[in-house]
């Protein structure tokens, strides 16, 4: 867990709003032609009053469905977009007003696009970035050694970037975003499309950078495992508004009463109606997963397990907390509702 320092926040966003005007376009070719001559515009509010404050050294997950406003917020904080209303500062710099000063303080990884020189050997990209960020030779050598030790970049250095695998490229891209030792790192979907091993490598590395360099990291991802593994704090966005801002663990505690019970039966398994408080969520041969809803009347989980074991031939029982992914999905699907967010962590 990150120690919160009594210090000025490294990122401060207050009432950020961002409106886009989008031309309406109907379906198919006819719609496209019609849109060509129409001036009908629709205002879309991608970010609608987002505010948060992030302390130095925090590792924050920034989650939300597609179109919730994640990328737009990141683009404001990195200086790419100017907000329609509200203010933001990153290390005291207003990113969209003092773009270059902000750029020197931050590292940015867009998972979908590389910042490396596509046709050149990987090492050339790092040399270019050394020049661009005016890094002293000694500092550069130190950081390069550290990055390539941890990420095992050595063998990749002489290979043209276009010949790297997605996982290798992402390792290099993340290293490239850190070469100037930024105090703040923005990661937009850094694990997208990676296999399990590559994801794990990246996660380990990010955790280490956060601990050893004290880099503040903001991570947007669709993979809730990333957030569960890395982010002590989670901000959830829905329709351009913050609907949750607090400890990742806190989210689970709030929904912790919805535990999953995985039971393996030896032969005969119970009928659905035989068990109050248990709802079958998955069935896999003799293994059945139940959702256990604590309501305070049924005598708790122990009683349920006791009853199960007495009435049926139980081979194995596993009680699992719901994953953050399951919780968030249920928030999106509106099967659970969060209390209105009051701006308090």
């Amino acid at each position: 867990m990150v120690e919160f320092e009594v210090n000025s926040p490294v990122i401060e966003a207050v009432g950020l709003k961002k409106e886009f005007s989008v031309s309406e376009q109907g379906k198919g070719f006819a719609g496209a032609v019609k849109a060509l001559f129409s001036t009908k515009k629709r205002i879309v509010r991608a970010v609608d009053g987002v505010g948060f404050s992030i302390q130095p050294g925090e590792f924050v997950g920034y989650a939300g469905e597609n179109g919730a406003g994640k990328s737009t917020t990141i683009k404001i904080l990195t200086g790419i977009l100017v907000p329609s209303a509200g203010t933001a500062t990153v290390r005291g710099v207003v990113p969209y007003r003092d773009r270059k000063a902000n750029a020197a303080n931050i590292g940015v990884v867009f998972g979908q696009r590389t910042q490396l020189w596509w046709d050149l050997p990987t090492s050339d990209s790092f040399e270019m970035l050394r020049a661009i960020y005016r890094i002293k030779r000694g500092d550069y050598a130190d950081m390069m050694k550290k990055l390539s030790d941890v990420l095992d970049l050595g063998p990749l250095m002489s290979v043209p970037v276009r010949k790297l695998s997605l996982g290798q490229r992402m390792k290099c891209d993340i290293a490239a975003s850190l070469i100037h030792r930024p105090k703040v790192l923005f990661l937009d979907e850094p694990t997208i499309g990676l296999d399990v091993v590559a994801k794990e490598n990246i996660r380990q590395f990010l955790g280490e950078i956060n601990r050893t360099e004290g880099t503040t990291i903001i991570l947007t991802t669709h993979d809730m495992n990333d957030i569960e593994r890395l982010c002590a704090r989670l901000i959830i966005l829905d329709k351009g508004r913050v609907i949750y801002d607090g400890l990742t663990e806190g989210l689970r505690q709030r929904f912790g009463h919805e535990k999953v019970l995985e039971v393996e039966f030896d032969g005969r398994s119970p009928a659905k109606t035989a068990l109050p408080n248990l709802e079958i969520v998955a069935e896999n041969g003799s293994k059945i997963s139940f959702k256990y809803l604590e309501d305070g009347r049924s005598g708790g989980l122990a009683a349920i397990i006791g009853k199960l074991a007495a009435d049926f031939p139980v081979k194995d029982i596993l009680v699992r907390e719901p994953s953050v992914e399951v919780i968030i999905r249920s928030i999106y699907e509106k099967t659970v509702s969060l209390p209105p967010y009051d701006g308090q962590k």
Binding site: T78, G79, K100, A101, A103, V108, R113, I132
Partner: peptide
Amino acid sequence: IGGEFDRTLVRPL
């Protein structure tokens, strides 16, 4: 359109 331009905005140049 490809978003490559964004990259130029996050560099100190």
